[in-house]
Simulated scan of single mutants.
Amino acid sequence: MSDKVTQWAYLNGQFQPLHETKISVLDRGFLFGDGVYEVVPVYNQQVFEWPAHYARLERSLALTHIPNPLDQQAWLALLNELIQRHPWPHQFIYLQITRGVQTPRDHLPAAELIPTLLAYTNPLAPIDKRKVSQGIAAITHADLRWQHCDIKAITLLANVMAKQAAQAAEAQDALLVRPDGRVTEGSASNMFLIKDGTIHTPPLNEFILPGITRLVVEKLCRQHHIEFIERDIDQAELSTADELWLASSTKEIIPIVRLNHQPVGSGQAGRLWSQMFDLYQAYKNR
């Protein structure tokens, strides 16, 4: 990033340089992880799939009983101004809303707290198909997260620990597995298993974040007559998968080519991944 570019943040109604932005140490997000967030990609200075991102944000706020500080149009106006303050054509915006500042510290939130709203943006590097097609290595790891992973909450310690475990195993990510053997997600992504030309993914429930990239993949499958099935996936199925993918807003769709030090399928990015990658790029640029 060029030193000449001032990176701006929005905090509680004011734009300010990101490196000067500060929150109170009494903010409940800092003390309790009491907040939610969104990550929104921007392509050619246009917000990608904003209605879906907003619906998920609104749902996370409702389930945590945190008031939404802005309506949908005000949110969009804020995002557009943040985008325009930066020269990058492709960006990813981080939004965080906590329950607000409370003193003295107490697990029980005080009534009528004012939420803390933070937003800032970073440049998003273009996706290089040749580079992404090299794939990543992953491991399986116990799903240590809480019972409401469908909320995009800022409490991500278990996700961090899964990433650390992957790094220690010389891998880049982890597929999380419940005690009953069900595979849920990656450490920060939805997962897909491909077998005999069909895309399988775990159904949305309390252990699955309703990913926006996941939603787009499902839409593209319907449009292009690719079979898409939501069902429970058992850990034992991973070793016989033709392909495994991870999907997130900033990484898009990534093939896993090695799992637990063993090749996935042919050990290379698969044909269906290549097709979906191209469909996704066309959808972004439509």
Rank of each mutant, 00 (worst) to 15 (best):
M1S: 12
V5S: 09
N12K: 04
Q14M: 15
F15T: 09
Q16W: 04
P17M: 07
L18N: 12
T21N: 00
K22I: 09
I23F: 04
S24P: 04
L31M: 10
F32I: 07
G35I: 00
V42L: 13
Y43S: 05
N44Q: 11
E49H: 02
R56Y: 00
A62T: 05
I66M: 02
D71A: 09
Q73A: 14
A74C: 10
L76H: 10
A77S: 11
L78N: 01
N80G: 15
L82Q: 08
I83V: 02
I83P: 05
H86G: 02
W88D: 04
W88F: 15
I93F: 07
L95P: 12
L95V: 11
Q96T: 09
T98L: 04
Q102T: 03
T103R: 14
H107N: 09
P109M: 03
L113D: 00
P115G: 09
T121K: 08
N122Q: 04
N122W: 03
D128C: 00
D128L: 08
D128K: 07
D128I: 02
R130M: 08
K131P: 05
V132W: 06
I136N: 05
A137E: 14
Q147D: 10
Q147E: 05
K152C: 05
M161G: 06
Q167W: 01
D173S: 03
L175H: 06
L176T: 07
L176H: 10
V177T: 11
V177Q: 12
D180P: 01
R182N: 08
S189T: 12
H200N: 14
P203T: 07
F207A: 14
I208K: 02
L209K: 01
P210C: 14
P210W: 12
Q223I: 13
H225A: 07
E227Q: 14
F228L: 09
F228P: 06
I229K: 03
E230Q: 15
I233K: 06
S239I: 08
D242Q: 04
D242N: 09
L244Q: 02
T250L: 12
T250G: 15
K251F: 04
K251H: 03
P255K: 07
I256P: 03
R258N: 13
Q262W: 12
V264W: 15
G267R: 11
R271V: 13
W273V: 06
M276W: 10
F277P: 02
